[in-house]
């Protein structure tokens, strides 16, 4: 299978990048998209060129390391999956495929398709935790939790921190990411104690880091590889307003 790849190449954070076109005939429909890039890199290395740098690790859709724009969509044309789970069977022989890094002020390009997502860590550090020390926990059954609430918390907690939501949003907003974390803790009794401080601190940090505002377009939910629901953003707003009022 032959593909024409237009890939964003950028030597480092300070240099100027550009699209480079590669005619690559070593693809096959059984490959994953990243395995296709691996194969392209093999040919580049053998020619003495620099391979295309991209992040990936678990390659099973759970670590959140990979992620790139493919033909105008974050993680490519298939919904509900990470880039590493994208298969080449979704592309046609001879197709042109444009590959770009996430574009967001808060996610500067490090090299080629790799971006710096430390901003997400900073938001979590601002308050994405329950303050409990090792050794001080009561028996796990001392904190019963309603099953439907626990299930909702789980649905929020499966965010993999890949940055798709930010990349998909025209404002580069991180609201879906922040709301998923805030929701998980807001739904648990043990998370309620610090709920107000948490939501205020995480929102403030998010704003300081240069993420845009949410204008409810829903692009984040539509593209999220883990199908995190926009309901979380509604919950985040509720938490935030109630924290601000009281």
């Amino acid at each position: 299978m032959k593909v024409k790849l237009k890939i964003w190449r950028q030597k480092n954070a300070v240099s100027k990048g550009k699209f480079v076109t590669y005619d690559f005939d070593g693809a096959s429909p059984e490959m994953s998209f990243l395995e296709m890039l691996d194969a392209l890199n093999t040919t580049l290395i053998q020619k003495g060129d620099n391979p295309v740098a991209f992040d990936s690790d678990c390659r099973e859709g759970i670590c959140g390391a990979c992620g790139m724009y493919i033909n105008g969509y974050p993680n490519g044309p298939v919904k509900g999956i990470t880039t590493c789970h994208l298969s080449m069977r979704y592309f046609k022989d001879g197709q042109t495929i444009v590959v770009e890094p996430w574009r967001a002020k808060a996610f500067p390009v490090v090299k080629d398709l790799i971006v710096d997502r430390m901003a997400f860590d900073k938001i979590q550090t601002a308050g994405g935790f329950i303050s409990t020390n090792v050794g001080s926990a009561p028996d796990a059954h001392a904190i019963p939790v309603n099953k439907s609430k626990a299930d909702d918390a789980f649905d929020s907690s499966i965010c993999i921190g890949c940055g798709t939501c930010v990349a998909a949003c025209k404002n580069a907003s991180a609201m879906l990411f922040v709301s998923a974390k805030v929701s998980q803790y807001a739904l648990f009794p043990q998370g309620k104690i610090e709920a107000k401080e948490r939501v205020k601190a995480m929102i403030q940090t998010m704003d300081e880091l240069g993420f845009g505002n949410c204008t409810n377009t829903g692009a984040c939910e539509a593209q999220c590889p883990k199908n995190i629901s926009i309901i979380n953003i509604a919950r985040l707003n509720r938490e935030y307003f109630s924290a601000k009022i009281n």
Partner: peptide, 22 residues
């Protein structure tokens, strides 16, 4: 057992039954 207690206190959403227990 301490490990499970600690993760629960940290808000790890382990599966629960309808009575709210793990």
């Amino acid at each position: 057992n301490d490990v499970i207690d600690h993760y629960t206190a940290l808000g790890v959403p382990f599966a629960r039954d309808y009575g709210g227990n793990l």
